[in-house]
Amino acid sequence: MQLKEGEKEQILSCVKDVLNKSSKKREDLIPILQKVQAKLGYLPALAMEIISEGTGVSGADVYGLATFYNQFRLIPPGDHQIKVCLGTACYMVGGDITLESFERRMEIKEGETTSDRRYSLERVACVGCCTMAPVVVVDDEVEGKVTPTRVDGIMLALKNGNDQTKDKQDQEQEDGEQQ
C-alpha cells in the first residue's frame, strides 16, 4: 500500500523514538516491534528496515518475526476496523458466514484494507464473550448475535455516521484542489 504524504516522516521519527528508548538487544526486538505497531497501527516496510539497521538484526529476521506472530500487521488498518471472531463458539454458530458477508459488502478479503483506507477487515481467535456468539468487534464496540442483515446495518451506520465528517473533509479538499 502506498504511503500517504507525510507518512514517511512520521514513520522515521516514531521508529527512532522507540529505538532510542530501548536497549537495542535481540531480546528487545519483539517489544520494539510491538511499540512501533502500537504507535503506527502497523509495521511498514520502512520501519522494519530502520529497526534492522538500529538493532543489527538482519532484515530477513525482522521480517520473519513480523510475519511469524499474528499480532503484527504489514498493511495499515482502516479508519474503521472490523474484527470478526472465529473462535470455536462463534464458528459453530456461523461466524464464517458473518465474515463472508463483510467480505462481500466491503469487497475485500479478510486481512485486507480497502484502498481508501476507510475499512479493514480481520478475523480474530476469541474476544471472550462466547455467550454472545457470533461476535463482531467494530472499532472497539462488541456487537453480539450478528446476522448478515446486521452486517448491512453495521456498514450503513459506519457510512452514514462517522463518515459524514470525513466526506465533508474530502469534499473540501477536492474543492480546494479545484480552485
Binding site: L86, G87, T88, A89, Y91, A125, C126, G128, C130
Partner: peptide
C-alpha cells in the same frame, strides 16, 4: 491461545 478458552485470562 486456544480459541474458546479463557480460564487463565
Amino acid at each position: 491461545g486456544d480459541p474458546g478458552a479463557f480460564m487463565d485470562r
